[in-house]
């Protein structure tokens, strides 16, 4: 398969993730859409590594996976903290940076 197929596929996945990020309101699903976009970027990084025959791009993709794992951990921690504070798990209703109890 030509490299262009992989790059095109990664563009499609990225666009699905980006429009999902706008369309969905649950922060959990928004995190999932972020994962989609990061994975699309990973796919194109690995495709370019294959194109050049150089494994440096694969190391880059590995670092992206680490950053994605950190982002997930912190994001899920935030969602759990929101749930504990009796805040709605809904992006539209969390519009103010204020204490929910006043």
């Amino acid at each position: 398969m030509n490299i262009a197929w992989y790059i095109g596929l990664s563009a499609v996945i990225f666009c699905i993730g980006a429009s999902g990020l706008i369309a969905r309101r649950s922060p959990l699903v928004m995190l999932l859409c972020l994962e989609l976009m990061l994975n699309a970027a990973n796919l194109s990084l690995i495709a370019f590594a294959r194109m050049h025959g150089n494994a440096d791009g694969q190391i880059f993709a590995l670092v992206v996976m680490v950053v994605a794992a950190c982002e997930v951990v912190v994001g899920l921690g935030l969602i759990v903290a929101m749930y504990r504070n009796r805040m709605p798990i809904d992006i539209d209703r969390i519009s103010e940076l204020r204490d929910p109890r006043d």
Binding site: N2, I3, A4, A49, R50, H52, G53, L62
Partner: peptide, 19 residues
């Protein structure tokens, strides 16, 4: 190179040893 299958790969490309 987008329209090719990519460069010729050395042996063990992308293997755990190389990474």
């Amino acid at each position: 190179a987008l329209d090719t299958r990519g460069a010729d790969l050395p042996a063990g490309f992308g293997s755990p040893a190389q990474i």
